[in-house]
Design a binder for these strands. Structure first.
Lengths: 183, 183
DNA sequence: AACAATTGTTGTCGTCAACAACAATCTTCC
DNA sequence: GGAAGATTGTTGTTGACGACAACAATTGTT
C-alpha cells in the first residue's frame, strides 16, 4: 500500500481558464520557449482547461483515491475491491454460476476464473459441480468465507466512512443515487 | 506459466470434494441471513447486498462506462482519455516539465514517458530541451497538435453530452461539483 | 443424431498504477 | 570549491484489470 501520500492535496483553487484551445501562435504572452512560464508556473497553478469540465476525469481521479483507501483499509485482510465484490454477491446469492456472477458484476468470465482460483485457495469460496448442468459450477462461501466476509464488511463500512469524510455525507449519498443505474 | 492441468492442484482437485449438503441453484430456498430470499434468485434478480451501498463499486462501473464512451467517441482520432488529458494540460500550460504534468494529472512520471513518446511520434507534442534546467524538457504542442486538440475538444464535448444524457444534466453538474476536490 | 449455443478454462494483448534502479543534472551545505 | 543529497527523465518489472480468441465439455435445439 505504500506510504503513498494522500491524493495530491492540491484541491480547490479556481483554475485559471486560459484561452481554451484557441491560442494564436503569434499573439502570445506565453513566453515559454524553454524553462518555465511566468503566468502558470511561478505561482504553482497549473490550469486544467477543458479537463475541469469533464466528468470522466474527475471520476477517474476519485476512483483512484477510493480504491487506494479501500485497499489500505482492507489491507490487513488482503482483500481487493473486486475480490470483495465477488464474495459479497456469492454470499448474498449462494449457488450462482460463474457466468451469472460475472454478468452481474460486469467482470469477464475469463477473469473470474483467476479470482475464484485465488479465493478457493484461501478457502473462502468453493466451486461445487452443479448436478443439473454439469458444465457449470455452483458457487458458495465456505464456513470460513462467511465469517471472513462479515469482517470484510465491517472494514468496508469503515472505508465507506472515509469516503463520507472526504466528500461529505450528503454528497456521498447523492453520488450513490446518481450512479444507481450502474450498479 | 501456469497452472496447467494440475499445477496448483486446486482447480481440479475440487472435484473430489464431498457434495453432501449441496443443492442445485434452482433448488430450494437458501440461507437468508442477509435478508435475501429464494425469490431473489427465482425471478432472476441477483442481489448486491452490501455492494449497493458502496460508492467505490458504483464509481468503478460508471468509470468503465464513461471511458468506453470516450474511447468510442474519440475513436476516429485515436485518442484515449489519458492522452487527451496530457494534451489539454500542455496546451493550457506550455513549457511545463514532464514532472509537473505528471504531478498535476496524478500520472506516474515513468508512465508519462511512453505517453509522450507516442504523442511526439504523431507530431502532436514536442519535447524541448530546457536551457535553464538541462535535466528537464519543456513540453509544447506542435502546430499540428494545436489544431488537433481543438478537434479533440469538440469530440470530448460530444462525449460529455452523452454523459449528460445518461445521468441527467443536473446530475452531471452535481457530480462535477461533488468531485471537484479531486481534479 | 447432427448442429448450434453455453460454460468454464487457457492464453494473448494492451492499459494502467506502483516500484526500483540508473545516469545526468541541479541544489545544498560544509 | 567540492562532496553529498535531491530531482528529472528513462528503462524495466510486477501485478491488477478489460477485451478477445480459441478450445473441450456439456446442453439445447431441430
Amino acid at each position: 500500500m505504500a506510504r503513498n501520500s494522500q491524493a495530491p492535496g492540491i484541491a480547490k483553487s479556481r483554475i485559471a481558464k486560459s484561452r481554451a484551445g484557441i491560442r494564436p501562435r503569434s499573439g502570445g504572452r506565453i513566453r515559454s520557449e524553454n524553462g518555465n512560464t511566468h503566468s502558470d508556473l511561478m505561482n504553482g497553478e497549473i490550469g486544467l482547461d477543458a479537463l475541469a469540465g469533464h466528468a470522466g476525469y474527475a471520476v477517474r481521479r476519485f476512483q483512484i483515491w477510493i480504491f487506494q483507501d479501500f485497499i489500505r483499509t482492507l489491507g490487513a485482510v488482503d482483500i481487493r475491491p473486486t475480490q470483495y465484490s465477488v464474495m459479497t454477491v456469492i454470499g448474498a446469492n449462494p449457488g450462482l454460476s460463474q457466468m451469472a456472477v460475472a454478468k452481474r458484476l460486469g467482470i469477464e468470465r475469463a477473469r473470474l476464473v483467476h479470482l475464484l482460483d485465488s479465493l478457493e485457495q484461501r478457502d473462502l469460496v468453493s466451486r461445487v459441480k452443479s448436478a443439473t448442468d454439469r458444465r457449470s459450477h455452483a458457487l458458495h462461501l465456505t464456513a470460513r468465507g462467511r465469517t471472513a466476509l462479515a469482517q470484510f464488511k465491517r472494514l468496508a463500512a469503515e472505508h465507506e466512512r472515509h469516503v463520507a469524510e472526504k466528500i461529505g455525507k450528503e454528497n456521498r449519498e447523492k453520488l450513490l443515487q446518481i450512479l444507481s443505474d450502474f450498479t
